[in-house]
Each structure stands twice: as structure tokens, then as C-alpha cells.
Design a protein around this nucleic acid. Structure first.
Lengths: 204, 204
DNA sequence: ATCTTTCTTGGACGACTGTCCAGTTCATTC
DNA sequence: GAATGAACTGGACAGTCGTCCAAGAAAGAT
């Protein structure tokens, strides 16, 4: 049975994590706009409904907040292709839909992806959120591998790439497309789409 | 003829640029250690023979100093493979020596490459040294393309990659090898060597 | 030796940082 | 309705930041 105190404790916990997620979202938009180096806790709080003093009530420190923020964004990113992998009936459809999705997220969430690369690089300098970054990197590698291996299945030939190798190549393509796009190259998303298809084709 | 004032003006200018390069080197070591976000002008000056007040005598601002520093490092990076491209007699030798050199620079200059990726990402947030970063990116793309196209020549078949495509893939491999290496994976340089060879082989 | 220009210093400035905390408001419980 | 604890505020703290500048040192020219 559930006692009254148990229910209230659960309700308290739910509210707590809900507030955490809300603040993580606020942090996400502020960070995406100005980058890690130029986003203070006061600016994050200004983006939310709370004051800067409250942030330490929900998070241990700035690194904890940033870890929650980037996880909220990128962990859903890594699952965006699950449905495509499951429902695609042949390899060309798989390649097309994957390329489509990548081009779309590049166009519509460029600032967030820019932030991802920012934080991943910051993690190389020993930031506190490094382990979260590593976990996301694992998710992304698995995501790429699920695409590549499924592509091999549909094509009837096993992939010639290792998972880490495939992820590095795809990530290189995406990052350079992002850089081009942010520098004003409006054709970058469409080119990324073609490049992804070409890469997948050469993977089997 | 050269007048006295002309000679002294040249001497002055030489000394000025020499000091600039020296300070850029000091900035490079400080930045490579702590990253862009955590390196102040005082720390850079502490790494040099001058005080922090002098930096604005030789550089317009912090961005100017950083641009000079990253250019000093990476513009020579981009020419490291010129000799190999010129002297390699067959495509396997070309691939081996290129892979060797990449593995070596990954091992021995990991902190500097980490800084390069840091600054390139910072440039996406509108820093003043963005144009310098873009120029270096062009150099690196040309470097990769000179390797790939020469590989095609030696192999007797034209490369199937575009220059930007090839650069994005190689850069992805290098960046992921760097990340693995900095996370403690001691086999990353050797693996990078093999991956580069595999990528070159699939390019023709 | 004196004057002038170049060079260098270290402190001052205002703005900003993450963190902490005394105090206040709010909701819930008895 | 009083009491209790959670939720929240905004200011204080000790730093650091890039930039600027008056003053002095060094170097060079006359």
C-alpha cells in the first residue's frame, strides 16, 4: 500500500524533476544562442521563470545543469532514426529517409547541433559533464551503426565498416555540413543528404 | 637606394612581427592546455617574457592574438604532407606515409589539435577570428585533396570524391581518433593510420 | 649628452563569473 | 489558523575577464 507520506514524497520528486527538465530547456536555448563560453547562469535564469539563485536548488553546479540540458536534447536526437530503421522496406528508401531527416534537423536545429559540438569539445578539456558527453557519443555511434547494419541487411551484403569508423565518417559529414550551413551555404542540407546516401552506398 | 629611416623602419617592423610571433607561440601553449574559455590574457602573458599590458601593444585585441596563434600552428600543419605527395612513388607508399604522419601528429600534438577544434567551434559563435579559421579550413581541404588526387594518379583511376567530401571524412576520422586518444585509448593513433589507408583505398 | 620615439609595466576600471546564503513567500500538514 | 518545510529571491562574495592608460625604462637619433 502507499502511505500519504509516500505519495507526497513521489509528488515532490516528480515536481523536482519536472522543474529540472524545464530549467534544462531554458539552459538549452540560452546555450545554443551564445555558446558555452558566453552563457552565464544569470542569462539561463533570465530565459526561465526562476531567478539565478534557484539554479543551485535544482542542480549541483553549472556542469550538472549543462549535462542535463545536452542530454535532454541529444538523447532524443539519437532515437530519431529508430522508426526509419524499423519500417524501411528497401535500402534506397532507408538512405533517402535518413538523409531527409538529417537535412531537416541540420536546417531547423542548427544552433542546437552547434552547441553539441561546442560541449563535446569543452569536455575534452576536463569539464564535469564529460561523462554525459561520452554517453551521448555512445548513443550516436549505436544509432549510426543501426542504420548502417540495417542498410546492409536490406542490401543483402554485410557492411564493411566498423561501428566507430562509420560514426566518425557520418559525424564528419554532418559537422562540415553544419559549418557550411552556419557560414551561409544554403545548399548544405541538400548536399548532406546526397553525401549520406553516397556514404551508405559505399558501406556495403 | 635605402635611406637610414627606411632601414630603421624595416628593422622596427621585423622586430614587431618577431615579437608578435613569439607572443603567438606563448598564447598557443597556454590555449592548448586550458582551452579558449579558460585562458586569459594574463595567463598567456605569464607564459611569455612580457606582461599582460603589453599584449595590446602587439595585438588589437584577444581575437587578433588568437588568430595569429592558431594560424602559426595550423598553417604549417597543412603543409606537412606536401613532401610526401611529391616524393611517393606508388599509392601504397603514399597511404602508409600519410597515415604514419597523421598518427604521429595525433600522438605528439594532441593538445594543439584539441585547441584547433575548440577554436573552430568557437568561430561558429561569431568570434573575431572566424575568417582566419575559414582560411585554415580551406588550406586543410586543399591538403586532403592533394593527397586524394595524387593517390588517384598513382593508382591510375580518378578519385570518386569531391574535395569537400573527402575533407569532411578525413576530418571526422581524425577528430574521433583525437577524442578517443584524449579519453585514454592508446591504440587510437594506430587505428587512425589503418582507417586512413582504408578510406584512401575506397576513394578510387 | 640630450631629446624622441619605441617599448614595457602594473595598476585601475567596470563588467561579469559561479557560488553561497539570509531572508521571504508559498503550499501543505496537523 | 498555526506551524512546518519546501521553494524561491536577490544581494553579497571573492574572483577573473578584456581593455585602457599614466608612468617609467630602454633604445635610438641628433
Amino acid at each position: 500500500m502507499t502511505t500519504t507520506t509516500e505519495r507526497s514524497a513521489r509528488s515532490h520528486e516528480d515536481k523536482f524533476t519536472a522543474r529540472r527538465m524545464m530549467l534544462a530547456q531554458s539552459a538549452l536555448t540560452a546555450l545554443a544562442e551564445h555558446g558555452f563560453a558566453d552563457t552565464g547562469l544569470r542569462e539561463i535564469a533570465h530565459n526561465s521563470a526562476l531567478s539565478h539563485g534557484s539554479l543551485h536548488y535544482y542542480f549541483d553546479d553549472k556542469d550538472d545543469l549543462i549535462a542535463e540540458a545536452v542530454w535532454a536534447f541529444k538523447s532524443t536526437c539519437a532515437r530519431r532514426y529508430d522508426g526509419i530503421v524499423e519500417t524501411a522496406v528497401d535500402c534506397t528508401e532507408l538512405a533517402t529517409r535518413v538523409g531527409d531527416t538529417m537535412a531537416t534537423t541540420l536546417r531547423e536545429e542548427a544552433a542546437l547541433h552547434r552547441l553539441w559540438y561546442d560541449l563535446r569539445t569543452q569536455a575534452l578539456f576536463g569539464r564535469g559533464f564529460g561523462s554525459t558527453i561520452a554517453r551521448i557519443d555512445d548513443l550516436l555511434r549505436e544509432m549510426v551503426w543501426s542504420i548502417v547494419s540495417r542498410y546492409g541487411e536490406l542490401h543483402g551484403s554485410p557492411p564493411r565498416f566498423e561501428p566507430a569508423f562509420a560514426y566518425a565518417l557520418v559525424d564528419g559529414l554532418f559537422q562540415h555540413a553544419l559549418i557550411s550551413f552556419l557560414r551561409g551555404d544554403i545548399d548544405a542540407p541538400e548536399r548532406l543528404q546526397r553525401e549520406c546516401a553516397a556514404l551508405l552506398a559505399s558501406a556495403v
